[in-house]
């Protein structure tokens, strides 16, 4: 079954449509509500920052948008697909096509070179070896690291690692990029470079970006800021 079997009418211009989502976790006998009836629309081509204190539910919301977690109730519709209705394998396929994820700690595979890390999502496609490698090199060129393609993560600085991670996120040309504190582990100069790169991806490559951040300067680069407090949108 493909993801296209669960199309949903989306709100006008909203690529990401979160409708009345509740997310609760069970810890032993206790039930913890992390998101409490959140609704959020992100139009196509938008750059959105989610802010809020620790434990406010912003990463949980990001995980739901990225399809790596499921809501307890409500709907998460991304590019017309109700993510919650997909099976595990459908969801995995959907993720590989539709979402690029940027982690705070880069999470590159240490035994793979930069270009091999970027190529990883393309192993799930039917592309040939040559074409996979060409696309990975193109993605590295976009992030300005074409000359470091054969370097391993341990040979790169934090900022360079994050740029490789961004190249990995965009290589399959997803509709949405989700970033979980992408500058949280970087010095201010590297953080600035990463934010500039994300702006470029949004402006020139029309990528819709949802970014979680604690950093007000990072949030200022986004078009829209949303604040979460105790599982609800405060503004």
């Amino acid at each position: 079954m493909s993801a296209q079997l669960h199309p949903v009418a989306r709100t006008a211009d909203a690529l990401v449509d979160v409708r009345n989502v509740v997310k609760t976790y069970k810890r032993d006998t206790q039930e913890l509500t992390v998101l409490n009836g959140i609704s959020l629309q992100v139009p196509e081509g938008e750059f959105v920052a989610l802010m809020g204190p620790s434990g406010s539910g912003k990463t949980t919301l990001l995980n739901l948008v990225a399809g790596i977690d499921r809501p307890t109730s409500g709907q998460v519709i991304v590019a017309g697909t109700d993510v919650a209705k997909l099976s595990e394998s459908e969801l995995a396929r959907w993720r590989s096509r539709s979402v690029g994820f940027i982690f705070q700690f880069y999470n590159l595979i240490p035994v793979l070179s930069a270009v091999e890390n970027v190529e990883l999502p393309l192993l799930l496609t039917s592309l040939g070896k040559r074409e996979r490698r060409d696309r990975a090199l193109t993605a590295l060129k976009v992030v300005g690291l074409a000359d470091r393609s054969s370097h391993y993560p341990r040979q790169l600085s934090g900022g360079q690692e994050q740029r490789v991670a961004i190249a990995r996120a965009i290589v399959a040309d997803p509709k949405v990029l989700v970033a979980d504190e992408p500058t949280g582990d970087l010095d201010s100069r590297s953080a600035e470079e990463i934010l500039a790169l994300m702006e470029t991806l949004n402006r020139e490559f029309k990528k819709t970006i949802v970014m979680v951040t604690h950093d007000p300067r990072a949030a200022d680069r986004a078009h829209t800021q949303h604040h979460l407090e105790k599982g609800v949108l405060a503004g």
Partner: peptide, 16 residues
């Protein structure tokens, strides 16, 4: 464990 999580995030199925 992190790498396995990353692979799954990138779209690798659990069976893969």
């Amino acid at each position: 464990r992190t790498e396995i999580a990353v692979l799954k995030t990138l779209g690798f199925g659990s069976a893969q």
